[in-house]
Structure formats: structure tokens, C-alpha cells
Amino acid sequence: MTKRIVVISSGLSTPSSTRQLADRLAADSVAQLRERGVEVEVETFELRDLAHDITNHLLLGFAPPKLEAVLDKLATADGLIAVTPIFTTSYAGLFKSFLDVIDPQSLTDLPVLIGATGGTPRHSLAIDYAIRPVFTYLHANPVTTGVFAATSDWGGGGDGVRSLPDRIFRGAKEFAELVERTDRSELVNDPFALDRPMGHLVGGLAGE
């Protein structure tokens, strides 16, 4: 059976180190899965291309067609690679806004590989204190290794402990192992699941 992986990059610039990290995480994950004899389909989405649709969804309570298509693909995915830049010690606002419009049920038991980029390695802790708890709250299953890439990592110096390629490989290996053994088909096909959270059905967001 073919596994489907969705990659979300919330970098704001072009070219983007956030997208670069997302692509490398995806490539290593695909390689790991294919070594296990698992076929993979990968779809990558840049959140900056969906920024207006995400805002409209937050304001109006329903997703425009382009954003709706991405949300549907995420709901039926077998794995998610999510990468965000770190601003002011936390994830990007666009990244959080996207998470806010996802049906929480669509992430249940979903394997997630978290990546983040920033100017200094000191921001690497944001993966564990800011990003991982959000996915845990949404009942997703983030792998143990989160991959942070500082500006210096792209030059090959790394953090002096483990190089960026090594960290990417380790995170991708954990992710591939989890994707391979996770079966979300019953969750995806649950006939009693709501298409959207109740807050969306009444024209607003829950907890607003």
C-alpha cells in the first residue's frame, strides 16, 4: 500500500531555508521508507501561498477551495512533515494560524516529523517547549527527534555535537518507522466524524 506524506513549510522568503529543510527531511524519509519496500507519495505545500485563505477561514469559518484541498489531503495522510521558522523564540504566526484551521480529528495518531529553522542554535529548544506540545494536544504522534537548523548548520559547521545531515537522517528514520507501522484508515473513514469542528459549523472557531 502506498503511504502518503504531506509536507508543510511556513517559510516566508524565496528561497527559504525552511523549505530547504522540509525538502531534505522529505527526501530522507522517502529513502528510508523505500528501503523498507514501502511506496511513498509526497505533496509539499508552502503556507505563504495559502496565507490569505487561512486568514479568510479564521474570519469567516470556512475554507476557500485551495485551502480546503490541502486540509483534505492532510486528513487522509499517513504522515506529516511540518517545518517552521522560529520568530521571537516560538513558531511563526502563519504556522500556528494553519494549525488553528485544521480539524483536530484529522491529526489523531498522525506521525509527525517536526523541523524548525532559526538564526541561532539557542532557538532549537522551541521544538520541544513550543511546537511539540501543540501536536500532542491535537493527538498527533510526533517522533522523538525534532530537527532544528541554524544559519551556521548550512555552512557545514553544525552545533559541534551532531551534524545537520545526521540529525535529518535520525529524524527521518524515526518518522519512516512510525509511518510504516501506523494505520489510520479506520480514523480517516470514520462515518461519524465531523467534516469540521463544531465551531466551524456554526460559523466561527471553537473557543473564540
Rank of each mutant, 00 (worst) to 15 (best):
M1E: 14
I5M: 07
S9D: 14
G11M: 03
L12E: 14
S13M: 13
S13K: 12
S13Y: 10
S16C: 09
S17I: 01
L21N: 15
D23G: 07
D23W: 05
R24W: 09
R24T: 09
L25M: 15
V30R: 14
L33P: 01
L33F: 04
G37W: 11
E41C: 14
T44Y: 05
T44S: 12
T44H: 09
R48M: 03
I54Q: 02
N56R: 10
H57R: 03
L58G: 03
G61V: 05
G61C: 00
F62V: 04
K66H: 15
A69N: 09
T76L: 08
A82E: 08
A82M: 12
V83L: 01
T88H: 06
T89M: 07
T89K: 01
G93E: 04
K96E: 06
F98E: 04
L99G: 03
S106H: 06
L107G: 00
D109T: 09
D109A: 08
V112I: 11
V112P: 00
V112C: 01
I114L: 11
G115R: 05
G118N: 00
G119C: 10
G119Y: 08
T120H: 13
P121G: 03
R122M: 02
H123G: 10
L125D: 08
A126Y: 05
D128E: 11
D128R: 03
A130Q: 09
A130V: 15
R132E: 06
F135Y: 13
F135S: 07
T136I: 15
Y137N: 01
L138V: 04
A140S: 12
P142Y: 06
V143G: 00
T144Q: 15
T145P: 05
T145H: 02
V147K: 00
A149Q: 03
A149S: 05
A149C: 02
T151G: 13
G155V: 07
P165Q: 14
D166H: 06
R167D: 08
R170D: 12
K173H: 12
A176E: 03
V179P: 04
D183L: 08
S185C: 15
E186I: 04
L194I: 09
R196S: 10
G199R: 10
L201V: 10
V202Q: 13
E208W: 12
